[in-house]
Design a protein around this nucleic acid. Structure first.
Length: 800
RNA sequence: GCCCCGGUGGCGAAAUUGGUAGACGCACAGGACUUAAAAUCCUGAGUCUCGAGCAAUCGGACGUGCCGGUUCAAGUCCGGCCCGGGGCACCA
């Protein structure tokens, strides 16, 4: 008989709630070590919770429950990243206020999360669109502003005409919007920017402090994109002006045969004077063409384009004149927007030189041009004969000595585009006064509430909906409020701090409380947030650290990513493919415990794996079998206190060890398989003993908490199994004295012997020789050599 | 192009880090129980137009994407490829 999961799930969810079983303890009233287990909070979409959420929240919940049983004071909260585009798009279509649809979606998420039996500390729930929350998002913005890290700038931005908003670099994938896949073009607009570039070096260096997957760290390193080199000044012929280039290869300075300025370079603007009248028209023409190109077109360009400007630069070492070109393969917003071209040793410069028939000069000995490897310098004056690395060092020294440039470091990371011309986001706590002064509003005026507007649609020119509420825009002394809103990633960049002290009206978080709980000990979420959310959060944490408001400079000590759960067909779940699995219907049928345990048993948590519905039956059988081992047909407990057979007792201790090790390593699938093996042996031994069933139920509890509580209660366990101390093992019982080891003859497996784990070589060989298949393989000859590792392997070598 | 992951039965996957490859589960087959079915319990099973035997069974060869290497011993280490997934990409 199967247990009644509907009744049991509801019963224990109510009891946990009533007893506040999962409430984190007050740090001032406990001596327990802390453990902060966090999920990336969901965007509460109207579609409800999907299996991807379960793949993330279930492992975190298993770890939280395990850590509680292990004596940790666990903080395991949940909340909602509730500002964002979908609710706003829906509002534009229907006129329903996004707050209404968002609240409805949150209710749906909350109820689904509760029916899964997740051990969240519910009273700590946060929602980024709640004024009590975004008050502090605005407060943190004022801190950024005060520290000179928030500024407005006319910048070429990623403008998405379909969404009528600008997007951050991280939100643009291959020239299209991350959300919706609409085309994105580059247009200049005045925007709020956050100076994340000031933190580039620390964001890079501090990756060494955290326990993240190497590939995630590597992706952040790539995104930050550090390059070391030098800025070098080149003079301009017939002018007193100079211009600066950035290069990582000053060793190739003598290989320069032309210079390239990006089309947007200030020296090329009308009236700057370096472009002679004879070339003005063609430069103008080229600039116009380049600016008309979208980011996508620029990237898709197969051939290099450019024009000669008519001007010449002067080589800082040998005074030779070098033609200056302009081309759009040089980007205005990286380095200085100008380069020295060394076609002999750079593939892009080589391609450009080939296209326009420019000189290509070798300065490093080696393979075919363009040669980017190492070798000895040639045709390079004082660098001749040096190896490339030595030449690089020497060249930088010489540049600095002659004061024609300085060593320099460049990052690919750009400042964070922080404003959106949208409605459903945090208003900026900023006012512009007639004098032109820009000021943040006083802290006691926070939160700056999001005003009501008649129409949520942004204007085609990019003016934000908030501008329509003129009453709201007016501020004292003729000031006008900023009408842009913050991007979705604002609230998510610090919400993990709010959980430490969620109801504080005087501070975003009490200093001592964050000092106790932070950093997050385990953070689980999708790998797609690698360069967005995870980088922004690290940045804000560091800013708050520098402001003395938090005590740690990294927010997430350990990070894990859940794999993608694919459809039963092995393809990514999508509505168009029709392979989307709805977790609600699965839970209805099998119960929360089976669903949770199944998700954990599917495979390694970080692997992408298909959802195979028929596999659920195996997990369901396992929990039913556990139930039947302890409970009779009429629902009474049949557990007794009989002593365990020796073998079963040993297996119990081995299992306690293995499950603990596996949980520490987040190897949930193998932990469950160990529990299955133990239960199978319980059946074979026909045991109903509490001595094995109670610890087994305790170990099952993190995965299947409802049925575990019910069994624990029936067997007379004290209190909640969720809070019962984790079972201990006797290490003496976890090792077998007699083991079966493989016997090989000439390296091939030929049999197995049962032997004392410390048996001597003589004993092992004797035992092996009595095995017929071993004798057979040896063909009657003696062993010429014996390799024996006690308890592991015996290999007999026979010369043919 | 560069940088990461990954590739093991019909399927999801294990494998103490070089030591009996395929634990556990699904699906499958056989048996027990049953009037029958479901459920349950027990048992079997990598592949082979390989060999012996009436048979249960016993033995052999092959086997972790491909080729080569190191080693007594390779899924695991090394070199060279192929395939799948992800990230970066005109960043000087």
């Amino acid at each position: 008989m199967a247990y009644d999961h509907k009744q049991i799930d509801a019963k224990w969810q109510q009891r946990w709630e009533k007893a506040q079983t999962f409430k984190a303890e007050d740090p001032r009233k406990t001596t327990k070590p802390k453990y902060y287990a966090l999920d990336m909070f969901p965007y509460p979409s109207g579609y409800g919770l999907h299996v991807g959420h379960l793949a993330s929240y279930t492992p975190t919940d298993v770890v939280s429950r395990y850590k509680r049983a292990r004596g940790f004071n666990v903080l395991h909260p949940m909340g909602y990243d509730s500002f964002g585009l979908p609710a706003e798009q829906f509002a534009i279509q229907t006129g329903i206020h996004p707050a209404v649809t968002t609240e409805k979606a949150i209710e749906s998420f909350r109820s689904t999360l509760k029916t899964m039996g997740y051990s969240f500390d519910w009273p700590r729930e946060v929602s980024t669109c709640d004024p009590k929350f975004y008050k502090w998002t605005q407060f943190i913005f004022t801190k950024l502003f005060e520290r000179g890290l928030a500024y407005q700038k006319e910048v070429p931005v990623n403008w998405c005409p379909a969404l009528r908003t600008v997007l951050a670099n991280e939100e643009v994938i291959d020239g299209k919007s991350e959300r919706g896949g609409h085309p994105v073009i580059r247009v200049p607009m005045k925007q709020w920017m956050l100076k994340i570039t000031d933190y580039a070096e620390r964001l890079l260096a501090d990756l060494d402090k955290v326990d993240w997957l190497e590939r995630t760290k590597e992706a952040q390193r790539n995104w930050i994109g550090k390059s070391e080199g030098a800025n070098v000044f080149f003079g301009i012929q017939g002018s007193t002006e100079k211009f600066e280039i950035f290069t990582t290869r000053p060793d190739t300075l003598f290989g320069v045969t032309f210079m390239v300025l990006s089309p947007e370079h200030p020296l090329l603007t009308k009236g700057s004077g370096i472009v002679p009248a004879s070339h003005r028209a063609s430069v103008d023409d080229y600039q116009a063409k380049a600016s008309a190109k979208s980011e996508v077109d620029r990237k898709a360009a197969t051939e290099k384009t450019g024009v000669f400007t008519g001007a010449y630069a002067i080589h800082p070492f040998n005074g030779k004149s070098i033609p200056i070109w302009t081309a759009d393969y040089v980007l205005v917003d990286y380095g200085t927007g100008a380069i020295m071209a060394v076609p002999g040793h750079d593939e892009r410069d080589y391609e450009f030189a080939q296209t326009f028939g420019l000189e290509i000069k070798r300065v490093i000995d080696g393979g075919d041009l363009p040669f980017t490897g190492e070798g000895k310098l040639v045709n390079s004056d004082f660098l001749d004969g040096l190896d490339q690395p030595a030449a690089l060092k020497r060249a930088i020294e010489e540049v600095e000595k002659r004061k024609i440039g300085t060593r320099n470091i460049q990052y690919k990371l750009r400042d964070w585009l922080f404003s959106r011309q949208r409605y459903w986001g945090e208003p900026f706590p900023v006012v512009r006064f007639p004098s032109g002064d820009l000021k943040t509003v006083p802290v006691n005026e926070l939160p700056v509430l999001l005003p009501e507007v008649a129409d949520y649609q942004p204007s085609e020119k990019g003016e934000a909906p908030l501008a329509r509420n003129q009453d709201w825009v007016q501020y004292a002394d003729g000031g006008r409020r900023e009408t842009d809103t913050m991007p979705g990633s604002a609230g998510s960049s610090w919400y993990f701090l709010r959980y430490c002290d969620p109801h504080n009206d005087d501070a975003f978080c009490d200093f001592d409380l964050q000092k106790y709980w932070m950093p997050v000990d385990l953070y689980v979420g999708g790998a797609e947030h690698t360069v967005g959310h995870l980088l922004y959060s690290r940045f804000w944490q560091k800013v708050l650290f520098d402001a003395g408001l938090v005590s740690h400079d990294e927010p997430f000590q350990k990070l894990a990513h859940q794999g993608v759960i694919l459809g039963p067909d092995g393809e990514r779940m999508s509505k168009s493919r029709g392979n989307v699995v709805n977790p609600d219907s699965v839970r209805e049928q099998y119960g929360a415990d089976v669903l949770r345990a199944y998700v954990m048993f599917l495979g390694p948590m970080d692997a992408d794996k298909p959802w195979q519905e028929n596999g659920i039956g195996g997990v369901q059988r396992f929990l039913d079998r556990l139930w039947r081992a302890a409970v009779s047909e009429d629902g009474a407990s049949i557990a007794d206190s009989a002593a365990l057979p020796e073998e079963l007792n040993k297996l119990l201790h081995k299992t306690i060890k293995k499950v603990g090790d596996d949980l520490d390593a987040m190897a949930f699938n193998t932990a469950i398989s160990a529990l299955m093996i133990l239960l199978n042996e319980v059946y074979k031994a026909s045991s109903h003993s509490k001595l094995v069933l109670m610890p087994l139920v305790q170990m099952v509890a993190p995965f299947a908490p409802h049925v575990a509580e019910e069994l624990w209660e029936k067997m007379g366990g004290e209190g909640f199994v969720a809070l019962a101390p984790w079972p201990k093992f006797d290490s003496a019982l976890t090792v077998d004295s007699v083991v079966s080891i493989g016997v090989q003859v000439n390296g091939k497996s030929r049999g197995v012997i049962e032997i004392d784990k410390d048996a001597s070589e003589e004993a092992a060989v004797a035992a092996a020789l009595s095995v017929p298949s071993v004798q057979n393989a040896m063909g009657g000859k003696p062993a010429d050599k014996v390799i024996y590792k006690a308890g592991r392997i015996l290999n007999l070598i026979v010369k043919s």
